[in-house]
């Protein structure tokens, strides 16, 4: 089957995320959701009052919190994940131009597999998870720390979690506005046309080496 006849039947699909990556994303998403809900119950008196059982809610928050790094560590076994982590880590000169431009959605400045916003989101999320994990661990073993550090850990944990929740909500909002991006995370592949528009350099790179993936 030639590329042109294949394209006539179905649009060319580009492989975007591996199975391992999608599972890691899904698992972290579910764990974060549980953490956010339990955090809200622990935090907001009127909400917590509806459910009560503070000790149980707290225990769930602690267990899920300590479980959060497990899928991240397992993900490091995946080649595709490490490659994407590497791409997220690397900022290109055009990324800064893209961030500063008013028409960043027009596709005028071609972006790679991830745009600068996604790179910032990934870095912030990883940093936030690590700091929340560290301060959460201090709160869990609070009897080993003097008051000042306990208060400090609680302070950082409280405020960073609010900032992180805002970023997570923003991430979900962006996804809700792009059905194809969601499809990419659900199925693993995206149509070539979407890739050309949203991630031009990545599409060129993929199409240069791999014509299709059926």
């Amino acid at each position: 089957m030639t590329l042109s006849s294949d394209a006539a039947v179905a649009p060319v699909q580009l492989q975007r995320f591996s199975t391992a990556e999608r599972w890691v994303h899904r698992t972290i998403g579910i764990l974060l959701l549980i953490l956010i809900v339990t955090a809200a119950l622990l935090f907001i008196p009127d909400l917590g009052g509806l459910v009560g059982n503070r000790q149980t809610v707290r225990r769930i928050h602690e267990i899920v919190g300590f479980a959060l790094p497990i899928p991240l560590l397992l993900a490091l076994l995946s080649r595709a994940f490490r490659d994407d982590a590497d791409r997220l880590n690397r900022f290109r000169p055009t990324d800064w131009k893209w961030l500063r431009s008013r028409d960043r959605r027009s596709g005028r400045i071609p972006v790679g597999k991830f745009n600068a916003g996604q790179k910032l989101n990934a870095a912030f999320s990883l940093g936030a998870i690590l700091v929340l994990l560290a301060t959460g661990t201090m709160m869990f073993f609070s009897s080993y720390f003097p008051d000042a550090l306990r208060t400090g850990a609680t302070f950082v944990h409280d405020w960073l979690s609010i900032a992180f929740i805002i970023v997570v909500v923003g991430h979900i909002y962006m996804a809700l506005n792009d059905a194809t991006a969601r499809l990419g995370m659900r199925s693993g592949s995206v149509p070539e046309s979407w890739a050309r528009r949203e991630h031009g350099d990545w599409a060129a790179e993929e199409l240069g080496t791999v014509s299709n993936n059926d």
Partner: peptide, 9 residues
């Protein structure tokens, strides 16, 4: 994070 914990109180 480290600065925040140290200066948190």
């Amino acid at each position: 994070g480290v600065v925040g914990v140290a200066a948190g109180r």
